[in-house]
Amino acid sequence: MVSDGANNTMAFPRETVLKVASLARLQLTPEEVDLFATQLGATLDYVARLDELDVSNVEPMVHAIELTNVLRDDVLVPSLPRHDAVANAPKTDGKYFLVPAILES
């Protein structure tokens, strides 16, 4: 039935893992890179069953309730006070979010 992920199908080689991790801004340990190559390969093998279907004439269904253009009146409403907005920041001076230097000197 379903591959249990024990055999690496190479559907997801290490280089792909590293490239995708970089796109996702996600640092992985070498062990995670190896593990994900195997596990994500098995998952991609499994989802390949969708190729059995010809869906070229089926419209993609993005949402269960297919709404368009939900609009509201353009009026000002109160928003989060500044103090509350920065209260959970890992680094803040009480007014701004502090980040490492963005531009190289």
């Binding site: 997801f12 801004r25 996600l26 640092q27 340990t29 995670e32 994900f36 994500l40 980040v99 490492p100």
Partner: peptide
């Protein structure tokens, strides 16, 4: 530990997300 902005993003996420969350972020990004 990070000094640059990109390192800060990747290391913060790498340190704090567990394995299943990482797997799904990877699968979805792909």
């Amino acid at each position: 530990s990070a000094t640059s902005l990109n390192e800060m993003y990747a290391a913060s996420r790498g340190e704090a997300f567990g394995p299943e969350v990482k797997r799904r972020i990877m699968l979805g990004t792909y």
